[in-house]
Simulated assay, not measured.
Amino acid sequence: MNGIAVDTLLTSLGLVAAGFTGAFLLYRLFRWLATLADRSRFQIDGLVLRIVGRPISVLVALASVNYALFRIPEVQAQFGAWSGAQNALLVITGTWIFASLVKAIVREYGLPMAERTDTDVDERVVRLLDLTAVYLIWTGGILIAFREIGIEITAFIASLGIVGLAVALAARTVLSNVLAGVTLTADRNFRVGDRIQVGDYIGDVLEINLHKTVIRTRDNEIVLIPNDVLGKEVIINHMLPEQTTRIEMTIGIAYDADVDQATSILQEILHNSDRIHDDPPPEVNVAALGDNAIVLQILVWIDRPRGKRSVRDTVYRKALSRFAEAGITIPFPQRTLHLAPSAQNVSLLADGSAAS
């Protein structure tokens, strides 16, 4: 078989098979130990075992392959004829192990942490970082391996830099949205489920993607806002620092009405509402003396920003009913016309001409 002794070849194949079998058993052993460690007081032990288990198993398997190859004289001669080939193989082996270790850390540590957050953006960012890190590791390992076997890599690195710059310039808007999305995700003042106001839009945050944020308005419309726009706009979060929010209402009563009685009726209505808080207590103040009415201002605190219109509707309806029972009128705009004497004379002359 191409000058390779059969017994040497069979021995090498047996070493490879034994190495892979040992690597598999070692991997299963690490998983079993990690399961036992999870039940202990310190769960970090199980996490460490799961992270290092796969790279060590890969190392055992690759070590068996390397040993099986280099014990064959013909293979040694081929590697000896190509300067640096053995070093390049060791670099590729180390790259594989390092990339496996990074993936294990991300899978066992990074993703579980991201899954515990309110949004799926953390998971996407972690997966993106994992993919980027693995590509960078393999790119660096391959370049080092090329250098070991005498291939010039300077021009290749320069080409990669030019290509990366061109991609960054072409995708600067996308990158801007992604960076803004990462910033929004890390901001504790902005979460999925919050009711926010951005410009003319008021709605609930449904999703924060890498490039856009989705909100549902009060009219049940879906609005997609680019993340870089949110990074520049003023955002009002109606859910923070807590969901309790204040409502202002106004109601006018006639000038001949009893202000104290109207205030007492309104206070009774407010204190008997399920959604209106007693602490801070509701307030009823005389806000202005209008052209047609005494304007009473009502300030109340409710449990959450959603449903403000329902609270206003309930208060106004009960106020209409109770004021009607108490004889308190809610005036409508009125105008009193005063005719000047000259205008009255003209009116009388016009009436006399018509009579004749």
Rank of each mutant, 00 (worst) to 15 (best):
A99Q: 01
N87V: 10
L184R: 02
F323D: 04
R147N: 13
E152A: 11
W82C: 10
L337T: 06
R28A: 13
V52A: 09
L59R: 02
Q267R: 13
R107L: 13
M1P: 05
N237I: 06
S347H: 10
I72V: 12
T11K: 10
D260G: 03
A350V: 07
I276M: 06
V58M: 07
Y67M: 13
D256C: 03
D228Y: 10
S64Y: 00
L184S: 04
E221L: 08
T217F: 07
S176M: 10
V198I: 10
T132E: 04
R304H: 08
V134D: 01
G84I: 02
A61H: 02
L165E: 04
F30Q: 02
I196K: 03
G164I: 04
D118R: 15
V178F: 10
Q344K: 14
R124Y: 07
A114L: 05
L26I: 08
L299T: 14
I149Y: 06
E242K: 13
W32P: 00
R335A: 14
I222L: 06
I253T: 01
A88Y: 02
V106L: 08
N345F: 07
A34G: 02
S40G: 15
F146E: 02
S356G: 15
I97A: 05
R147E: 13
I265F: 12
V223A: 04
G193F: 01
V58P: 04
D291Y: 03
P333S: 14
N292K: 05
G181A: 03
G203E: 01
V126Y: 12
H277D: 11
E108W: 06
L111A: 06
L90F: 01
T173F: 12
